[in-house]
């Protein structure tokens, strides 16, 4: 199987550790993953903000870059969602039949990382070790655009040493919403504040998600509050092993690992087995 990594422009530029972790994880599972360097961006920001004409060349580039692969893996639910839901529409709107055929070929082969791991590779235990108290935020695109369901939870539950704590009101949007975070920053922050309140109520040390974009927003508030909760892409948790433990996110401020929140006994019994 010829597998390509669609790193996404955001991960490429801002969160290379998540992308490296994706490569490391896939290679550990025996996948020969390639990074076609012609890739740039799926066009999500342009499409969602109303700049569809500007997104057309990006759709074309995506199709040309990934046409020859059996599967394309993206460590981002919202980018995978854009490819699957919008690329065909953009192509159809512009009346470009060849592009439409190209999209019809490539879009269905584009997988969000956790779906690729569970559905294509058939894995739940990926051999990871992550000795931390973790809560998981299922992003809106994971839930409603891609319907990932309990896939990320199945993967996290199989991680050795990891304590998974239920996130209250987890299906609520965090308020990121792309340019919404800027255009309606007050509402965005109001939503984010509630998400952060729920995250902190779990006593988790790490907030994990399948989208670094949402994590940048939630993590931005957690950081401003000096909350002692850090954010981490699920790829980095799943790539972590006994051998490599402690190497991820070395750039995090030292204080973040030492948040002294509610005492442990108060949190007892909150561990969940169902997402």
């Amino acid at each position: 199987m010829k597998v390509a990594l669609f790193v996404t422009c955001f991960n490429d530029t801002m969160f290379p550790e998540s992308a490296k972790a994706t490569v490391e994880l896939l290679e550990r599972l025996g996948v020969d993953v390639d990074f076609p360097t012609g890739q740039t961006c799926c066009g999500q920001m342009h499409i969602n903000t109303g700049y569809r004409a500007e997104a057309l060349p990006l759709v074309r580039r995506y199709v040309e870059t990934f046409d020859g692969y059996d599967a394309v893996v993206a460590p981002s639910a919202s980018c995978a969602g854009t490819v699957q839901h919008y690329h065909s529409r953009i192509a159809a709107e512009r009346g470009d039949a060849a592009l439409r055929d190209g999209v019809a070929n490539v879009a269905p082969k584009t997988y969000e990382l956790t779906r690729f791991l569970t559905d294509v590779l058939g894995k739940e235990d990926v051999g990871a070790y992550f000795p931390h108290r973790v809560t998981y935020h299922p992003t809106c695109h994971s839930l409603r655009a891609l319907e990932l369901g309990d896939r990320p939870y199945r993967l996290l539950r199989a991680v050795r040493g990891l304590t998974l704590v239920d996130l209250p009101e987890r299906e609520e949007c965090c308020g990121f919403g792309g340019t919404f975070a800027i255009k309606n920053s007050d509402v965005s922050v109001a939503m984010g504040a509630d998400k952060v309140r729920h995250v902190r109520s779990t006593g988790a040390e790490v907030l994990v998600s399948a989208d670094n974009s949402c994590l940048t927003h939630i993590g931005g508030i957690l950081g401003r509050e000096r909350s002692g909760v850090r954010t981490l892409h699920i790829a980095e948790v799943l790539a972590s092993t006994e051998r490599a433990a402690g190497t991820t996110h070395a750039e995090q401020p030292a204080e973040s690992a030492r948040w002294k929140g509610r005492p442990e006994q108060e949190l007892a019994g909150q561990e969940v087995t169902h997402p």
Partner: peptide
Amino acid sequence: KWSRARDIPLPPKESFRQW
């Protein structure tokens, strides 16, 4: 508008494609 209530992450010294 972003940073009134949210910290801004800094870009890495090396992007993924450079790595």
